Amino acid sequence: MLKHRVIPALLLREGGLVKTRKFGKHKYIGDPLNAIRIFNEKEVDELVLLDIDASRQGREPDYELIESVAAECFMPLGYGGGISTVEQARRIFSIGVEKVILQTSALENSGLIRELAERFGSQSIVVSIDVKRDWFGRYRMRSSAKGYAKSLNWIAVMQKLVAAGAGEVLLNAVDRDGMRMGYDLRLIQLAAEAVDVPLIALGGASGISDFALAINAGASAVAAGSFFVLQGSHRAVLITYPEYADLEKFLR
């Protein structure tokens, strides 16, 4: 077994899967259930499913679709998007999801993280931190629901949410989303030094060697989108996952 998880991160929009570049330029990937079946065959470690419109549109999660995905999924599943109450989280857990991922509601009310952790355990609560560089190259937290970079100390916010009870951090480098240019290793290092919970690095993976670099920078696990669903210079849709032996060479 690998010491570090390698996690496909799938983006859900209007019932289908899409892939973005720097959180824009949405490319349709296909039906989520078909992708899940392929990842089942590949014996994927874990899966993340993010509804990128739910919080922005102010609506609840699509429970029917999530239940269909959870029923088909043979690996641990984390879901994020539109979760703003304890009852919504409870319902998602009840249909077979192992982890809930929060950003918008957590930024607005860190007390929700505390309530969820007390009710369901910190190990099942993940906070999503999106970070984007400004014109001066400085890191700024980005609000995925609001669609702009906020002038906040992202490290302090991340630490606050972890202190409230989040058991894991999903750290996404917005500037590298879909660009296949490698992870932002400095960003990973800063985050890893600031919190003592598992850190999942996301954004920029172009190959297995990038996974190793992210782990060496301080990530506990690595996630990717384009690497698992798009291939070649023309970004053709091809859902795949590396062979275990190939991953083992880099992630022992």
Rank of each mutant, 00 (worst) to 15 (best):
L2Y: 08
V6C: 01
V6G: 01
L12F: 05
K19N: 02
G24R: 14
K25E: 12
Y28E: 12
P32G: 05
N34M: 01
A35S: 08
R37A: 10
I38Q: 04
N40L: 00
N40K: 00
K42T: 06
E43L: 11
E43W: 10
V44F: 03
I52Y: 02
A54G: 06
D62I: 08
L65V: 08
L65Q: 15
S68N: 14
V69M: 07
A70Q: 09
A70E: 09
A70Y: 09
A70V: 12
M75T: 15
P76C: 03
L77F: 00
G78E: 15
G78V: 13
Y79C: 01
G82L: 01
I83H: 04
S84E: 07
V86D: 06
Q88G: 04
Q88H: 04
R90Y: 09
R90I: 07
R91A: 11
I92L: 12
I92T: 13
I95R: 11
I95M: 11
V97R: 02
V100M: 10
L102A: 11
Q103D: 15
A106D: 13
N109D: 15
N109V: 11
R114C: 07
A117S: 15
E118N: 15
E118Q: 14
F120V: 08
F120A: 05
G121S: 04
Q123P: 07
S124P: 06
S128H: 10
I129S: 06
V131G: 02
K132S: 12
R133P: 06
F136W: 11
G137W: 05
G137T: 08
Y139Q: 02
G147S: 04
Y148E: 14
K150Q: 14
K150T: 11
A156D: 14
V157P: 04
Q159I: 00
K160D: 14
K160C: 05
V162G: 13
A164D: 03
V169G: 10
V169C: 09
L170R: 12
D175S: 06
D177F: 02
G178F: 07
G178W: 06
R180E: 15
R180W: 09
M181S: 14
Y183P: 08
D184V: 00
D184C: 00
D184H: 03
L187T: 10
L190V: 12
L190G: 05
E193I: 00
A194Y: 09
A194W: 07
V195L: 11
V195I: 15
I200R: 06
I200H: 09
L202N: 14
L202S: 13
L202D: 06
G203K: 03
G204P: 00
G207F: 03
D210E: 05
F211K: 03
N216A: 13
N216T: 11
A217Q: 02
G218W: 03
S220H: 09
V222E: 07
A223Q: 05
A224R: 01
A224E: 04
A224N: 00
S226L: 08
F228V: 10
V229H: 12
L230F: 13
R235V: 07
A236V: 12
V237I: 14
L238S: 15
I239F: 10
Y241R: 03
Y241W: 07
Y244G: 01
A245P: 00
D246A: 13
L247K: 02
F250M: 05
F250Y: 12
R252P: 04
R252L: 00
